[in-house]
Nucleic acid binder design. Structure first.
Length: 424
DNA sequence: TCTGGGGTCCTAGGACCC
DNA sequence: TCTGGGGTCCTAGGACCC
């Protein structure tokens, strides 16, 4: 039995913990650059605001009524960590799936004690962090997702829903669930399933797995097995390092100036290099991309990317920044107003299993110096705050700087912001 | 004026091998 | 007239997730 613990309207709930005046009001949290609505309170959903709605297209009446906040990832990340600490006290088997969801192993409990245990978990998280969560219990992950969905939608469940694979009640629930609401089935697959007269989760469960695999993919076949109660989806081992690392941002405003892009690409490469060292990897290649704003008709459109191989695997910020700069120079086109750029580190290898290059031999002494330098930079930034040491100084107010005009305080990670009072 | 930022897995098809 | 039958590896792009 697996429990899916999902925080309700997570970003909004985090904001409410530190500003109870937001309770009962329509609240939204915005993406970077205050671009889109990425989290909504129930009150905001009730006003008809869709997930991902562009902020500047919201009706004025809604903008007046709602509290719309910039995202505060330092706060959400720390609150997420606190929630997971509590989950770990309830089960030795916690798989963090995203910032607001975790799968929790629930095997080993007496059959009639599972729901009560889930209720206790829910109450403890609420009491100790202030975050409301719902729990879906089922034998597979896909069914646990369905159970969680029900627990959120129907108050009668009081936040905990258990689905057995073969119970008549489960059949009734699946018959009423559109296939597109299943985890792993989105618009494209739903459209193609509809052509085969498969509209509900129950109909998909009844489909022949082999046929499904032939017409769609092994991914959808696994969903069929999971709906039948047979586990077929394993999560990646979370301790596995990432296979690629990406850092990209939209600019605060469009810019066609090469120095602006240079500066942004350098910042992204430096941040990516920190993430790379943090997971103990090195990159064998790096990708740089730039693009104009595809939403603007009449604007000259351009997008391009280039992969820059590195002579030897590296996690040295200086080498990665230099490679990124070369990549940018190769794809920059004058006369375009750019909206976004980014850097992706590719072909990652574990630092201690790195293969040395025959073509670019590098003395062990030089490697050692590089490693000590990077470790020192990372330590200073960790202990004294991000960007205490950085590679080159960005100018103030550059075009690519993010807009985030409505961010709340980083209450749990910054002493200097803890007491900052905001009057609304 | 203004539309996010990450990730994963799978498949098809090309290039190449014998 | 008529030109095989497997493999592997890599990459780009699709689809999906939060």
């Amino acid at each position: 039995m697996i429990a899916l613990v999902d925080c309700n309207n997570f970003y909004v709930s985090c904001e409410r913990v530190f500003d109870p005046r937001l309770e009962g009001r329509p609240v939204g949290v915005l993406s970077n650059n205050d671009g889109c609505v990425v989290a909504r309170s129930n009150e905001l959903k009730a006003l008809g605001v869709a997930m991902g709605a562009p902020m500047h297209l919201l009706p004025p009446a809604i903008r007046r009524q709602a509290v719309l906040l910039s995202s505060n990832y330092a706060l959400y990340g720390d609150m997420s960590r606190r929630v997971n600490l509590i989950l770990e006290a309830f089960s030795p088997d916690v798989e963090v799936y995203s910032i607001d969801e975790s799968f929790v192993g629930f095997s080993g409990f007496a059959v009639d004690g599972r729901e009560a245990h889930a209720q206790r978990l829910r109450e403890t998280v609420r009491r100790d962090t202030g975050i409301p969560v719902c729990v879906g219990l089922a034998p597979t992950r896909v069914l646990a997702k369905v159970a969680n969905h029900l627990a959120k939608k129907q108050a009668a469940y009081q936040g905990v829903c258990l689905l057995e694979a073969d119970a008549p009640a489960t059949r009734a629930r699946l018959e009423r669930l559109p296939v597109s609401e299943l985890w792993g089935v989105a618009r494209r697959s739903a459209e193609r399933l509809a052509l085969m007269e498969i509209h509900t989760a129950w109909q998909l469960r009844q489909a022949d797995p082999k046929q499904v695999r032939r017409h769609f993919s092994v991914v959808l076949e696994r969903i069929v097995w999971e709906l039948r109660g047979r586990p077929a989806i394993r999560l990646d081992d979370l301790h596995e390092p990432r296979q690629r690392i990406m850092v990209s941002r939209s600019f605060g405003r469009l810019t066609g100036a090469f120095p602006d892009l240079q500066e942004a690409v350098r910042q992204h490469a430096a941040r990516a290099a920190e993430k790379l060292r943090d997971q103990g990897s090195q990159a064998r290649a790096l990708m740089v991309f730039v693009r104009s704003n595809p939403h603007l008709a009449g604007e000259r459109q351009y997008r391009n990317s280039v992969v820059v191989p590195l002579p030897a695997p590296s996690d040295d910020s200086r080498e990665l920044l230099a490679a990124a700069a070369r990549g940018l120079a190769a794809i920059f086109l004058a006369g375009v107003r750019y909206q976004k750029c980014g850097v992706m580190l590719l072909d990652l290898v574990e630092a201690d299993r790195r293969q040395l290059s025959l073509l670019a031999p590098c003395s062990e002494a030089a490697r050692g110096r590089s490693q000590r330098l990077m470790a020192t930079v990372d330590r200073l930034n960790r202990e004294m705050g991000r960007d205490t040491v950085r590679f080159g100084l960005p100018r103030q107010g550059s075009a690519w700087a993010l807009r985030c005009e409505r961010r709340t305080s980083r209450y749990t990670t910054r002493w200097d912001e803890l007491m900052r009072v905001k009057i609304r």
